[in-house]
Computed example of a mutant assay.
Amino acid sequence: MELTDGGSGTESAAALSSLFRGDIGFWADRTPVHEAARQGHIGQLQQLIDNGACVNLVTVDSITPLHEACLQGQTQCVKLLLSAGAQVDARNIDGSTPLCDASASGSVDCMKILLEHGAKVNPPLYTASPLHEACMSGKAECVRLLIDVGANLEAHDCHFGTPLHVACAREHLDCVKILLNSGANVNAAKLHETALHHASKVKNKDLIKILVEFGGNVYARDNRGKKPADYTWPSSASAKCLEYYEKMPMSLSQLCRLSLRKAVGQRGLNKIAKLNIPPRLIAFLSYN
């Protein structure tokens, strides 16, 4: 960095000074700030900050102390870091934000603090979202919270597909139920592969049943030309289940339920309980 030339030297010196003041992060190994945040040593973290330590230091893989605290569910450290100016939506080398990490660790308290500080629920296209992370880890309570604050149910990661794809691949039935009840597209495709293909690959009969109940297409073919049934073992429980659904058409009541839910739309599903219709119909439409 050249510091000998008049005005440009002043600007360069200012940039260098800014670097050491911690206004921007810089490449480093894990620092004492990272370690204190990870281990939940709130007193040590406060002392480091009081002594001028930067809360936005990044490691070689772009992990900040806030990422560390969220991964470990260190709520008090998250509060302290954010109060000291930590970047709430900092991204690591994989594109994950602290909210992604809090979702993965299942720390609802950390998630709420991040959201209060303006954390973005929906990332740019084609990157894993906090909702993907919660579904991957099977954190049902985190899934509910993210949906309540506006998480995009159809967020598409170029590797994993939608959150529903992820939840089925990892066999997290509770997360699948929450997503579907909230209006996730059961037939969303990743390279023509649906969630039902994933459920068939893991040979999970319960997943197959609930996906079909919500309108999963048993005849959908992926980019290899295979139906969900083609990924099951002959005579297995999952194979027999899909064989039954392929031979038996949906009942009229089931077709009506799917049509009504589609007409109401994703945003209107939570209003079904307020309709002036018999409670049994409300329960049926809501899959209760």
Results as ranks from 00 to 15, higher is better:
K190Y: 07
I24T: 13
C54M: 06
K205V: 15
N223K: 12
A119P: 04
G225E: 08
I49D: 02
W233F: 08
P32I: 11
E2C: 06
I113L: 07
T75L: 12
D29F: 00
S12I: 12
A53Q: 03
L16E: 13
N185Y: 02
G138M: 05
F284S: 06
R224L: 15
L125G: 10
A90W: 00
L285T: 04
A14I: 11
I208H: 07
F214N: 14
E133T: 01
E141P: 08
I42S: 11
A195M: 08
R257W: 05
S251C: 11
C54T: 15
L260T: 04
L211P: 04
H67P: 02
R257P: 11
Q254P: 00
G268Q: 12
C175H: 06
P249G: 13
L275M: 15
L258R: 13
L179H: 04
Y231W: 12
V78W: 01
E116F: 00
K139L: 09
P278F: 02
N152D: 15
G40R: 04
D230E: 15
D89C: 04
L146S: 09
L173A: 12
L115Q: 05
F26T: 13
A167H: 02
D157E: 10
A128H: 02
E213C: 13
A15R: 09
R261N: 04
L153T: 09
A84C: 06
D50T: 07
L275K: 05
A37I: 10
G215A: 13
H156E: 13
G52I: 08
Q44I: 07
A273Q: 14
L275Y: 11
T75C: 06
F20R: 12
C77W: 00
N92G: 05
A167L: 08
S238I: 09
D148E: 15
Q72G: 07
A184F: 03
E35R: 04
Q72N: 14
V176D: 08
R224G: 13
L115D: 05
P163I: 10
C142F: 01
